[in-house]
């Protein structure tokens, strides 16, 4: 993802701002890292350049 996405994305749960924590970057592209909600603290991973903003109950580790 590109960093300018930060001006439009928000926490899917409470719609508050997210903090960006970059782990790996390739020029303008953020390849891995995480997005952390400034209000509820939920952590959303960035994997292979695509942020995973699924709420926790929609993720793989969630019970079916």
């Amino acid at each position: 993802m590109k960093e300018d996405l930060m001006d439009i994305i928000c926490c899917p749960l409470d719609k508050h701002d997210l903090d960006l924590e970059v782990e790996e970057r390739d020029d303008e592209e953020i390849l891995s890292g995480q997005l952390v909600c400034t209000e509820c603290g939920e952590v959303f991973p960035i994997e292979d350049g695509i942020p995973n903003l699924l709420p926790p109950d929609m993720r793989d580790e969630a019970p079916a």
Binding site: K2, P12, L53
Partner: peptide
């Protein structure tokens, strides 16, 4: 295109 993984019932986008 900027791709996002997300849920249509809880969009991770600002109003």
């Amino acid at each position: 295109v900027s791709l996002l993984q997300g849920d249509a019932t809880r969009l991770p986008l600002r109003a």
